[in-house]
Every structure is written in C-alpha cells, then in structure tokens.
C-alpha cells in the first residue's frame, strides 16, 4: 500500500473508532457529566435499591421496601445545611401540595434522607420536618444510622457527598422517584418540581 493510501485508511479508521468511542462514552452524545449519565441510565433501566434500615424523625425503624406498592419521592439532605437543603424542603413541600390529597400517603409518599447521621439525630430531623410540614407519615425525614448501609444506599442512588471547607457538604442534589416495584425510575433537577409532580400524577 502506498503511504498516502495507508494514511487515508488509518485516519479514516481512527476517526470512525474515535467517534464511536465518544458516542459510546457519552450515551450517544447526550451525557457529558456523571450526573446526566446517572439520570440517563436510570431511565433506561430502573435500579433496585438495597435493603437498609432507616430511622425517621419519630424514631421508627423503617426501610424503603416498606414503601413498595406506592410511589415514593426521595431527596438527600443534611439538616445543618444552610443553602440548598433549605430550598429542598420548600421544593418537597411544593411537590406534596401538587399531588391530589386522596393519593397522599395511600399511593404516594415522600422521604428526605439525611446522609449525615453523625450530626443529624432524630431531634434535628424532627425540627427539619416541622419547618416544612413533614408530618412523619406522608412525608418522613430519616437517617441511616449504619455507615456501611448509608454508603450502599448512596451508591445505589449515585449520590456523591464531599465535605466543603465550611464544615458542610456538597452533593449532587436532585429529585428521585422510586416506583411501586421499589426501583429507582426517575431523577430530575430540583428546579423541576412541577414536572416531577406531573409525572407522579400521571403514574397514580
């Protein structure tokens, strides 16, 4: 093969392989960040969640599997958070108020899970809940006392928590919907409360 021909052939090969790789690595040029990738993957294949023991603001021991047969909205918080989690509380409240009253608790529930069991005891969970009207039935605020279980839960949801320089945390914040089968099926941005509620209503 003459050099020019060889160059053309390998260049074409490199460009095709390279483009295919980019297409593959970005889920068809849609997911350039790990956060988008997590959402795309959940939509494609709803993910089962691990069995972990949660403790709610009233000290009840529950698990996410107790919610099977109902739709469940999940968010992750820590109660000493001064920024985003405060608006998370408002957003969850907004979602709850957009769901028909007769479905609340019976067919749809909410849970805010703290990833900071060291600082969040049941008292601080209760205080957080009271601030936004989380009643402990329709909307629970819970912690995962066991560290290993907490990690497996965060991993399953794809939540990455990193300490910031002010003694708090930064984490990927989103609205999560767990289906009746107990699988995580939808993740959306926190500023999409109304569309999220619409999705829930459509599934009721």
């Amino acid at each position: 093969m003459n050099p020019v021909k060889r160059s053309v052939v390998t260049t074409t090969l490199v460009i095709s392989l390279g483009s295919w790789f980019f297409w593959w690595a970005t889920d068809g040029f849609t997911a350039f960040t790990a956060e988008t990738a997590r959402r795309v993957e959940i939509l494609r294949s709803p993910r089962p969640l691990p069995m972990v023991t949660l403790e709610d603001q009233d000290g009840n021991k529950i698990s996410l599997q107790d919610y099977e047969g109902r739709l469940l909205a999940v968010d992750f918080i820590y109660t000493s958070c001064t920024t985003l989690c405060q608006s998370m509380g408002m957003i969850f409240k907004q979602i709850r108020d957009l769901i028909p009253r007769e479905s609340l608790g019976r067919d749809f529930a909410l849970i805010s899970i703290s990833f900071d069991p060291d600082h969040d005891d049941t008292a601080s969970l209760k205080k957080y809940g009271q601030a936004y009207g989380a009643d402990g039935k329709i909307w629970r605020v819970a912690r995962v006392p066991d560290k290993a279980e907490l990690k497996s839960l965060l991993d399953a949801f794809g939540i990455v928590v990193i300490p910031d320089e002010f003694g708090g945390y930064e984490h990927n914040t989103a609205l999560h919907l767990v289906g009746r089968d107990g699988r995580l099926r939808l993740i959306t941005d926190i500023d999409k409360a109304a569309p999220f509620a619409e999705q829930v209503v459509a599934l009721l």
């Binding site: 050099p3 260049t11 980019f22």
Partner: peptide, 28 residues
C-alpha cells in the same frame, strides 16, 4: 510508517485528549 504517517497520529492524540477533558471522564 506503519500507521500511515502523522495525520492518524495527531487524530489519535486529539480524540484521547478530548475524552479526558470531559467532566464525566474525570468522575469515572
């Protein structure tokens, strides 16, 4: 000479370096 000169080499480097500039690649 085997790979066909400098153009495919530059292309390979371009693709590989671009990939590692994706935020997703850093997280991965």
């Amino acid at each position: 000479a085997r790979v066909g000169g400098s153009v495919p080499c530059v292309m390979v480097a371009l693709f590989a370096s671009s990939y590692w500039m994706l935020p997703r690649a850093l997280d991965a």
